[in-house]
Design a binder for these strands. Structure first.
Lengths: 222, 222
DNA sequence: ATCCGGATTATGGTTTTCCGTAAAATACTG
DNA sequence: CAGTATTTTACGGAAAACCATAATCCGGAT
């Protein structure tokens, strides 16, 4: 079982619940941070003192308010922690149910478990902690387990996402072309953009560009 | 202070926290529902038994899963409860920080308090309970208090929202016209739709329709 | 009934997007 | 290096969206 645990979660009512779970599992050495920055600093300090944490439980969305922060959300925190301490176990604990984002957490950030905040999240969190502590298996809440099966057979480029984000923020196709040219992004012709959009619409079964942006927004891609 | 309280909240970790707050305030007679439907039935039953609840604390978003539900979210629950029992006090407890939606809860659903799930939500919840129990004042978390000041000088019609929703789900303007004609919605000409969209774009400072849909989606209007 | 004002609808022209085809550039292969 | 495949770019017509103006409808006031 884990010896030293850190929790990153801003909502007090929830961190209270997590605390209870840890106590039930006889984990007494745990810290709690309401800010991602703080959590990261603590973890780095712990490494320097040769007493690293061996588990991170992190929320994904954080209310930043007007405070200046380096790490704005759990995704970023997890990324940086994975770089800093590759062997640590990471459990994401979130209400996020967009399959794309969950899949991305496993694929790109190498989380060990994803627990959905839900009606029985406390039990699931216990189970997740148990599994990742005793093995190298991953855990995912059954409600969203299908996320992992989803084959993203068609790869979305970074350029695709750029285009979608620009469209969502009111940039016309012609303007996007100008921007790409000035930034020297490779495909920057009218046709290229059009073709990419056409493929995206095809893949996401979108009737038109508005629909496409709407869908990808809902999926949490942009 | 309140005698009988009902909590509608699906995430177990959070309802645990609320429970603690109620206990601290010496409120022992409280019920807890993970489903809106269930909460509503309990409240109706309580009225029939002449022992109505005098406070509802409700989350806004609920994970429905694949279960058949009549009331899908907290907004709807609050609306129905307000109709059923006009004098009951209602506190919304949510992570929702879109000012439009918060304002709408006060204006259209007549909630008495809005507490944002945040770093000090437990203290705020206590304060909210206290205020609404001892007076007819309303309470709103300071982080989102500005929501109420926002003057929606220009008011959005139900038709506007219909149009936006249709656009977001891939319906072209021409198709919307057809739909409106078949449903006998009053303004159903090309020009009317165009004019409304133009006003909306003007108001929301949107460059084009994609941008408009994107903005209104972010604001939680559609 | 007539006039007025606002809302709805109609019309036409411009811009933007959409979509198919084809040329040019690049990469890959023997 | 020639030849082929893939990607990027170019072009042009059709559709949709955009925008300004004008005509029509309709309820209320005189």
């Amino acid at each position: 079982m884990f010896k030293k645990v850190i929790v990153a979660e801003d909502v007090d009512a929830i961190s209270l619940g997590i605390e209870q779970v840890l106590k039930e599992l006889n984990i007494v050495n745990f810290q709690h941070s309401k800010y991602c920055d703080e959590a990261f600093l603590k973890m780095r300090a712990a490494i320097n003192q040769n007493e690293p944490y061996d588990l991170l439980i992190s929320d994904l969305s954080f209310k930043t308010g007007h405070r200046e922060v380096k790490i704005k959300d759990g995704d970023e925190l997890i990324q940086k922690v994975r770089d800093l301490q590759p062997d640590i176990k990471i459990i994401a604990f979130s209400v996020e149910d967009k399959s794309y984002r969950i899949k991305s957490l496993f694929d790109n950030s190498g989380i060990d478990a994803f627990v959905l905040k839900s009606m029985n999240s406390i039990e699931e969190l216990k189970k997740a902690i148990h599994i990742v502590s005793t093995s190298d298996q991953t855990f995912i809440s059954p409600e969203v387990a299908s996320a992992l099966q989803e084959k993203n057979n068609f790869e979305m480029d970074d350029v695709d996402i750029q285009i979608l984000k620009h469209l969502a923020s009111g940039t016309s196709q012609d303007e996007i072309i100008e921007i790409f040219k000035s930034l020297e992004v490779k495909p920057n012709s009218k046709s290229a953009i059009e073709k990419r959009l056409s493929k995206l619409k095809d893949f996401f079964k979108a009737n038109n560009t508005i629909h496409l942006v709407s869908i990808t927004k809902d999926m949490g891609i942009i």
